[in-house]
Design a protein around this nucleic acid. Structure first.
Length: 287
DNA sequence: CTTTGACCTGGAATC
DNA sequence: TATATCAGGTCAAAG
């Protein structure tokens, strides 16, 4: 590892918001190394981050290094983040205001779409630690070793060569079929997944829905966390609960809730979703 | 077009 | 210490 360096001093960031960003379920490649530090990887770069006195410090692997610019981009530490927060309707929405206040600096990471799709294909009826665990088994077996205890995403072409039964042995359960079939779909279409990012949100989502194991929720997670589509609004059980309890949308179906989210939260609905989601998960509200 | 149940597995809840 | 339930969903069959 390189020596620790200061990445940036960040006034409006809490340890909780940062911790939740890295371990709250939008990504699965980070592990806590101490009370205030985390180690993980993105696009075969290994990084350790530390949060201290409103400042983020970083160090990186010598064999798989990242630059500070790459880390800032991955963490969405840019003016566009502040602008996005500013555009959310927290001035007139006290629920959202309370969530943002409780989790300063919570953000959407800029992950790669291939790896993000993979993880969310594993996510159904699994808790965050379980998704992390079974994902890691696959990385460990078919990926490249990047660091002690850190392995890379093998890539869809590699995954396409693996029989479903072999994936089942890695505890994927019925998700093995999703991964195996999706891998074959993607591997047989050159540049298909990457080109989705050039599309408009609705079209990109329509494309992802063609994949086996990808329903609305997984499609929106993939687009939001891996495709930089900030208007994507994944509705899982937590958000479902949030919409019904905090916004009184009992009896609304998913399409209606999605419409509400888009109208009410606007083009950064996905960022709002992350605050609502984490607030619900971390029990910010008394109920 | 909405509703229902199966699908793998295991950590967490209740006996 | 056992046994039953349910979990960041999807899909297909049935109403």
């Amino acid at each position: 590892m390189s020596p620790w360096k200061e990445l940036i001093e960040y006034k409006n960031l809490s340890k909780l918001g940062f911790h939740e960003t890295l371990t709250g379920g939008q990504c699965f490649g980070w592990n806590t190394t101490s009370d205030n530090s985390w180690i993980g990887s993105f696009s075969t770069k290994v990084v350790e981050l530390r949060f201290e006195n409103r400042t983020i410090f970083w160090r990186t692997s010598l064999t798989y290094p990242a630059t500070s610019e790459e880390i800032l981009e991955y963490l969405w530490v840019e003016k566009s983040y502040d602008d996005a927060i500013n555009e959310l309707p927290w001035r007139s929405d006290s629920v959202l205001a309370e969530c943002i206040e409780a989790l300063p600096g919570l953000r959407i990471l800029k992950q790669s779409i291939d790896e993000t799709l993979f993880y969310f294909l594993l996510s159904s009826a699994k808790s965050i630690p379980q998704i992390q665990a079974i994902g890691k088994l696959v990385f460990q077996k078919y990926g490249k070793k990047l660091f002690e205890n850190i392995y890379s995403f093998p890539g869809w072409d590699r995954l396409a060569q693996i029989p479903e039964r072999e994936l089942r042995m890695l505890k994927l359960g019925y998700r093995a079929k999703y991964v195996a079939q999706t891998a074959r779909f993607i591997a047989s279409r050159q540049n298909w997944l990457e080109s989705i990012m050039e599309l408009k949100y609705a079209d990109a989502k329509k494309q992802l829905l063609r994949l086996p194991g990808v329903g609305e929720k997984v499609a929106d997670c993939t687009l939001l966390f891996g495709g930089n589509f900030l208007e994507a609004f994944p509705i899982d059980t937590w958000i479902e609960k949030s919409m019904e309890k905090r916004y009184n949308l009992n009896g609304w179906n998913t399409a209606q809730k999605l419409h509400f989210a888009s109208m009410h939260f606007g083009k950064f609905a996905g960022l709002a979703q992350q605050f609502l989601f984490s607030a619900e998960r971390l029990k910010v509200f008394k109920d």
